[in-house]
Amino acid sequence: MRRSILVAGAIAVALGALVLWGPAVPVLIPSEPSPGAGAVAVAAEHPFAIGDAQSARDQLAGLSIVSGWSPADYDRDAFGEAWFDLDGNGCSTRNDILARDLLEVTLREDGCRVATGTLIDPYDGSVTDFVAGPDTSPAVQIDHVVALAWAWRHGADAWSDEQRIAFANDPGNLVAASAATNQAKSDESPAEWLPGDLDFACRFTIAWVGIVETYGLGVSTAEAETIRQVLEGC
C-alpha cells in the first residue's frame, strides 16, 4: 500500500508539471563551433540533439530498479577535480562546453578560456550575456543533465574514481544553462522536475534516460513509472 501511495504521488507531481507547462519557447542547440571559438576543441554532440521517445521508452524498461539511496553521503569531491581536462586539449571542461554552447564566443589570450558569449538557455529559451569574471561568470553555469548527486544515489557511489571523473566531465551529459535554471533543476530527475515547454521536456527526458542507460545507473520504482508516463506523452 505504501509503495502504491508513493508511486501515485510521484505521478501526480509529473502530471502537475504537465498541466503547468507554458507556451513553447525557442531553444537553440548549437551543432557547429561558435564563431570565434578559436583553439577550443568543439565538444561532443549536444545531448539534446539526439534520441527519440520510443528508444527512450525501451531504454527505461531495461533499467535496473534501485532504492535511490546511498549509505554514504554525497560529496562532489568524489567526482574529482571540477571541470578536469579529460580530453587533454589543454582547456577545462567548463570552457569546452561554453565554447560549444554559447553564441558569438570570444576567447582570452590563451585561446582556451571563454571571455564573452551569448547563452540561449536550452531549458527555457532565456538569453544571458556571458562575461568572464569573478562576479559575472556564475551567471552561466554548466549543468549535468543527469546530476552528480542523483547519480551517486543511483549507483555511482560504487564506481571507481576514474568512472566518476569521466561521468562528471562527459560533454554528452553537460549543457550550459543560466544560474536560475541550473539551481531550479538542482539534482532532480524528470520524475521531479521538467522544463516548462512540452516539446523540450520530452527532449530533456529522452536525453536523461539515454545517459542513465549508458552509464548503467538505476531508477526507483516510482521514478520509472513517472518517467514512463512522461515519455508516453512525447
Results as ranks from 00 to 15, higher is better:
33 P>Q: 10
35 P>Q: 09
36 G>Y: 12
36 G>W: 12
37 A>R: 13
37 A>T: 11
38 G>R: 05
38 G>W: 03
38 G>N: 04
38 G>K: 02
39 A>H: 04
39 A>Q: 12
40 V>L: 12
40 V>P: 02
40 V>K: 10
41 A>P: 00
41 A>W: 00
41 A>I: 15
42 V>Y: 08
42 V>T: 12
43 A>Y: 04
44 A>W: 03
44 A>L: 06
45 E>K: 13
45 E>S: 14
45 E>R: 15
45 E>V: 12
46 H>S: 05
46 H>T: 03
47 P>Q: 00
47 P>K: 00
50 I>Y: 10
50 I>E: 08
50 I>K: 09
51 G>H: 08
51 G>D: 10
51 G>E: 10
52 D>A: 13
53 A>T: 09
53 A>H: 01
53 A>M: 01
53 A>Q: 01
55 S>R: 09
55 S>Q: 09
56 A>R: 00
56 A>V: 01
56 A>F: 00
57 R>L: 15
58 D>C: 00
59 Q>M: 06
59 Q>C: 03
60 L>C: 14
60 L>N: 14
60 L>T: 14
60 L>Q: 15
61 A>E: 14
62 G>W: 01
63 L>R: 08
63 L>H: 10
63 L>K: 08
64 S>G: 13
65 I>Q: 04
65 I>M: 03
65 I>W: 00
67 S>I: 10
68 G>R: 05
68 G>Y: 03
69 W>Y: 12
70 S>Q: 07
71 P>D: 14
72 A>T: 14
73 D>A: 15
73 D>P: 05
75 D>R: 15
75 D>V: 06
75 D>K: 15
75 D>M: 09
75 D>P: 05
76 R>T: 06
76 R>I: 07
77 D>V: 05
77 D>E: 13
77 D>F: 09
77 D>A: 14
78 A>Y: 03
78 A>S: 14
78 A>I: 01
79 F>G: 01
80 G>K: 03
80 G>P: 05
80 G>R: 04
80 G>T: 03
80 G>Y: 08
80 G>A: 07
81 E>R: 13
81 E>W: 06
81 E>K: 12
83 W>Q: 11
83 W>R: 11
